[in-house]
Design a protein around this nucleic acid. Structure first.
Lengths: 200, 200
DNA sequence: CTACCAATGGACCGCATGGTCCAGAAATCA
DNA sequence: TGATTTCTGGACCATGCGGTCCATTGGTAG
């Protein structure tokens, strides 16, 4: 399938709008008619741009949100080499998940929890983003080690997993309590655990 | 609605079977016909025992799984007063989420992520279980403080949030990677952070 | 025994949903 | 310009779903 400029724009519009709806109501709570309505498109366009239907649209959303989540953490995420940079990353994460209205989950987190188990392709796609995210964090820990800011006992991969789990778990608790506070607490805890390996 | 012994048994059978299906396929992926088939009941029975339909059934499942998850951590969860008891709790958590076939999420965690946002009653119910869980963990930290095993800087509520987030976030990553290892790593990290406050 | 109410079976309904199809408009290109 | 392909609109379809209804069975209490 080849796309003209106009076609690509329409496709992008669909993905962006659908991504928002899915983030808000979940995959199951978002119908194709919903995204049709939100994008002023027709049913045929949906299947024109996503021949495999809803599955393919959801996969496109996963890529869209995966990139978006990582981008929201930049530039800090790419240059985690000092304690200040980690702090900047922390602020970026918190800022990204802060909404004026209510608390929503992580775009790729909720997608993973809801749909990854039933669509192997989606699962693999999302796994790649998780992998990349973890790797960037682990790189950051390694840089701290190279800079002599952290001792050799700090396992980069383990801390990356911890930090990621803190973000996702914190976000789940945040949804329950209606405040972003649990995310902040969990994230700070994981960061504090990393700082426990700091060398004077 | 009054229940005879037979009725109560049937109702319980429905809840248990439906809970399993929901854990495996999610709320959206489980139809009333599915649970009807799995329990050898009829549609009318479902609405006889759960007049509000699927919503009410899901809420019953939430209570069932909420209790189940907490029970799986007992007796350790009730008596967190030494480092050994925390270790026993850790083992209980890992054991509970260990399945021979694949990795599933937390029964109440996935329920929270998928459906809590749309059913306020369900949300409140689940919030109560999260609250109780967090409180039991915080109590454990407080007991460590009373026993002089941990210094005064250890915030019980913060550590409870951290531990809970580690479990839930670790479980999400575990689903992605197909191994329980991330859960173990995240949980051990949060416990290690708590141990950082240990007094010799 | 009888009257009552819980328990069960299963046909049935309305509707939302994912998906198909075809025809026409618009853009691209030879 | 003419031909070809992409883009768009919207009617249409099949089905799975939550939910309703009523008739029948069966246990239980007075």
């Amino acid at each position: 399938m080849s796309l003209t400029a106009k076609g690509a724009a329409t496709r992008a519009r669909i993905v962006a709008a659908a991504a928002d709806q899915v983030l808000e109501r979940g995959v199951g709570g978002t119908s194709l008619d919903d995204v049709r309505g939100a994008t002023s498109t027709s049913k045929s366009q949906l299947f024109h741009y996503f021949p495999d239907g809803k599955h393919e649209l959801v996969r496109a959303i996963a890529d869209f949100q995966g990139a978006r989540v990582l981008d929201a953490q930049r530039p800090a995420l790419d240059r985690l080499d000092s304690w200040e940079s980690w702090q900047r990353w922390r602020e970026a994460v918190l800022a990204h998940y802060t909404r004026v209205d209510g608390v929503r989950g992580c775009p790729i987190g909720s997608l993973t929890a809801e749909a990854a188990a039933f669509d192997p392709l989606l699962r693999d796609q999302l796994a790649a983003y998780w992998e990349r995210w973890a790797e960037l964090l682990a790189d950051g820990v390694r840089r701290l080690r190279s800079a002599g800011l952290v001792d050799g006992a700090a396992d980069p991969d383990a801390h990356a997993t911890e930090l990621l789990a803190a973000v996702q778990g914190g976000l789940l608790l945040a949804q329950v309590r209606g405040t972003l506070e649990p995310l902040e607490t969990a994230l700070d805890g994981a960061l504090d655990h990393l700082r426990a390996h700091a060398v004077a």
